[in-house]
Write a protein that binds this DNA or RNA. Sequence first.
DNA 1: TCTTGACTTCAAGTGGGCTTGAACTTACAC
DNA 2: GTGTAAGTTCAAGCCCACTTGAAGTCAAGA
Lengths: 157, 157
Amino acid sequence: MIERYLTIGEVARRSGVAPSGLRYYESLGLISSQRTGGNQRRYERTTLRRVGFIRTASRVGLTLEEIGDALATLPEGRTPTAEDWAQLSRSWRPLLDARIAAIERLRDDLEGCIGCGCLSLERCVLQNPADRAAALGPGARYLEGDSPSDAARAAGG
Amino acid sequence: MIERYLTIGEVARRSGVAPSGLRYYESLGLISSQRTGGNQRRYERTTLRRVGFIRTASRVGLTLEEIGDALATLPEGRTPTAEDWAQLSRSWRPLLDARIAAIERLRDDLEGCIGCGCLSLERCVLQNPADRAAALGPGARYLEGDSPSDAARAAGG
DNA sequence: TCTTGACTTCAAGTGGGCTTGAACTTACAC
DNA sequence: GTGTAAGTTCAAGCCCACTTGAAGTCAAGA
């Protein structure tokens, strides 16, 4: 018989999530386990991948509830079908794409600060708030919470 | 005189961050304000952009401490130079790129589940943990916390 | 001037995501 | 068989990112 089930300690070591964290995930229904006669948890190997998925999604700002909701769209009693997966993939895509776009905007904004010429005007999108001499000028990029019309209004007076 | 300073309520409405949140950011040194004679805060317009930046970075999983550390690399007493900005941009790029890569991996993994053929094998990277009939097979992608050698070991026995 | 909504500080509370500790049991190498 | 590392539950605690509440002050229009 091949070694099929993993103890919580093994999953912990290999996933980087502490046993307490794995129990917490299980309490939320994100992962599941078999029990030995002595009530100890035993995990399937695929749990490692599932935990990796949870960690990654969590690290990029998704809540465990969102992750759980997504994983819960998979059927409980049967092997997920292609349509189950397609639905999960479809439902998450906009969220993930939005996350990516947000980070890229952040990154580009930082780079834009160097290239946009605003430094020569002694101001910037991310201007040091201690810089009292600042005045709003041209060349600004906008982040969420600010808009082109804001910039126009500010520039206008 | 143009309207130059914003009250905390105005910044709150326009940034989407509650006054209490703005005070919290200020307590952490992420933003700063002038005070009126009556001790009320007044913000420069650029604060809107700064707050937008903080929110975006926070939403994609960066801590306020990381954000603060980054913003703190900007000089306190003078206008940031091109080199100040270049340094901030350089120091954040790997972090942001890693974040983007993680989300893309997540997204591609979800899509891969549909296209990789694993469904026909009644198993998947994100296999339903309730599926007891599962056995680890070929075609698996790996996420953080799992590795090619893991997969080889599992497939091997 | 007065009223009222917006502001102030400070302390405590909340929710998410875990961790820690106490008290106890199980699994396994020797 | 036994020692010990690893497991169990449950309650409480911790850190982060805020929010809420109390008690009081400020700003500005009628």
